[in-house]
Nucleic acid binder design. Structure first.
Lengths: 250, 250
DNA sequence: TCAAAAGTGTTATTGTTACACCCATGC
DNA sequence: GCATGGGTGTAACAATAACACTTTTGA
C-alpha cells in the first residue's frame, strides 16, 4: 500500500486510490434495493409459545399484526440493525439473536421491492419488561395466528420451523425460561414448541445424562403441589464441549 | 377492492390506490443498498472437494479468486438471480441450490456498501460441462484456498460448515456423485467432506438399513481391482418418508 | 500370483423406549 | 385426606462401534 496515495507506485499502474474510485463507480452503477430486518421474538408463558407483535403501521395493512422491523441504516451491519430494532421498541438487550433467512419476493411489500432479512430471538418474558405499548406491542399466542401484514406469516412460519430444528440440536430453548427452572417447565417447553408428548422419566434421564444442569438446591414456590427442584443450565460447560462429528441420520 | 379505483368506497376513507401510493412514497424515502448473490458451487472429483471459482474482475483484487456472483436485478427474486448466475456463467441448470446466509459487513466491498446473499450449490462435475473458461473459471481444490477477493473466504468457510452439517441430516451429498455410484465412492465423499474416517462395514450397514439405495445390477468399470456394485439413490422414497420428530441431541 | 479393493457377521456397548408406584406439598 | 405433580428404576429393544477374513478382478 502506498504511504502517499497521490504518488502511484509506478506511472503505468493505477494506484490504490484510482482502483477504489473505480470500484465505487462500479457499485454506484448497480440497482439498489431497500433492506429491512424483521425480528421474530419468541417468548414462553403460561405454557404457550408467544411472539412479540405490533399492529402494522402501514395503513394498507390496517389492523393486521406485524413483526418488529425497520429499515437498515446506510452503513449498518444487519445484526446491529436487528439489535437496534429490539432495543428501540422494547428496551430489551443482551438477548439471543440470530439471522435466519432473507426473503426477496418482489411483491412482498405493496410499496415496491423491499428485501427483508429475518432474525430470530428468544427471551424470557418475565425478565424483560416491554418499555412501550405503542401500536399495541404485546406478546401474542403463536398458535392460531393468521393473515399477518406483508409476508410476515411466511416469515414467522419459517422461523418456527427453524426454532423446532435448532432446539433439538442446541440448548436454545433455555433462553425462553427463567435462569432457574424446574424440569417440568423445561419439559413443557419442549413439548409445546416441538409439539410432541415426552415421557417424563426419559426426559429427566436424558437431561441429567448430559450433565449440563446445575442443581441450585432451591425449590419452586407458589405451586399448589409438591415443589420441584430448580436448576440452572451450564452454558459454559456446553460451550466447551462442542461435538464436531455427530453421524449420518436421515 | 374497488372496481373503479377513481371512486373511493367512501369519501372519508382513502381508497386502495391512495394507500398504495402512500406505501410507494414511504419505500422511496428509505436508504437503498446494492444486493448481490454469490454462489458457492461445490463439486467432488478425484476424491477431493472442489469449488467453482473465477479470477476476480475487480482490478483491486487482481489475481485473487472469487465466487461466482452478480448483482440482483431490480425486480428479481434472489433464488432466480442465483440460478441466473449459474446458468449464465456455466450453462448449468437443474441443480441443487439453496440460500445459506446474508453477509452485510459494510466494509466487505471496497466500492461501498454491498450486501450479498450466499447460495450453496452441489453438482456432479462430470455431468456439467463448463460452457466458458472466461476469467479462468475452473474447479478449484477446496483445501488450501486462502486470501480470496472480498469476504469470499468467510462466505466459503461458512458454506462449508453449512454443507458438513446439512450432509449429515439430508442426502445432499448425493448431488455431488454421478447417478450411479459405488459404495466406496459414497463413503469417500462422506469421509472427505466431513473430514472423518469411517468404518466400511458400518457405513454399508447404515446405508443399506435406510433402504434408500437402489441396486442397479451394474458394476464399476475401468477399475484396477474387483469392481463394486453401482447404486442409485431413491430420492422419491426419501421425500415421502420425512421424519418430523427426531430427538434432543446436544 | 499379486495387489487392491469388494463383500460380509458377530459381539459388546450404548442409547432409547415403555412402563407404575410412592412421595411431598397445598388446600 | 385428597388432589396434584415430583421423584425414581428396570427390562426390552434398537442403534452403534469395534473388529478380520475371504472373494473377485486386472495387471
Amino acid at each position: 500500500m502506498n504511504i502517499n496515495p497521490d504518488i502511484p507506485a509506478t506511472t503505468a499502474v493505477p494506484g490504490e486510490k484510482e482502483l477504489i474510485e473505480e470500484a465505487v463507480a462500479l457499485v454506484a452503477s448497480y440497482p439498489k434495493v431497500p433492506i429491512t430486518v424483521d425480528c421474530v421474538i419468541f417468548g414462553f408463558d403460561e405454557n404457550e409459545l408467544k411472539v412479540l407483535l405490533i399492529r402494522s403501521d402501514l395503513p394498507l395493512f390496517h389492523g393486521k399484526w406485524s413483526l418488529l422491523g425497520d429499515f437498515a441504516g446506510d452503513q449498518e451491519e444487519l445484526d446491529d440493525a436487528a439489535y437496534r430494532v429490539m432495543r428501540s421498541r422494547t428496551g430489551m438487550d443482551d438477548v439471543y439473536l440470530e439471522q435466519v433467512r432473507t426473503f426477496s419476493n418482489p411483491k412482498r411489500h405493496p410499496g415496491g421491492r423491499v428485501l427483508t432479512v429475518a432474525y430470530c430471538s428468544l427471551l424470557n418474558i418475565e425478565h424483560h419488561q416491554l418499555k412501550t405499548h405503542e401500536n399495541e406491542l404485546h406478546w401474542h399466542s403463536f398458535n392460531g395466528l393468521k393473515d399477518m401484514a406483508f409476508d410476515h406469516q411466511e416469515v414467522l412460519d419459517y422461523c418456527y420451523k427453524w426454532l423446532q430444528k435448532r432446539m433439538q440440536e442446541h440448548p436454545l430453548g433455555l433462553n425462553l425460561l427463567p435462569d432457574k427452572f424446574s424440569l417440568r417447565e423445561l419439559q413443557n417447553l419442549y413439548e409445546v414448541v416441538l409439539n410432541v408428548k415426552l415421557d417424563r422419566r426419559n426426559f429427566r434421564k436424558k437431561f441429567f445424562s448430559m450433565d449440563l444442569l446445575i442443581d441450585t438446591g432451591e425449590y419452586e414456590d407458589d405451586v399448589p403441589h409438591r415443589p420441584g427442584r430448580l436448576y440452572k443450565f451450564n452454558f459454559q460447560k456446553y460451550e466447551k464441549n462442542q461435538r464436531s462429528w455427530i453421524g449420518i441420520d436421515f
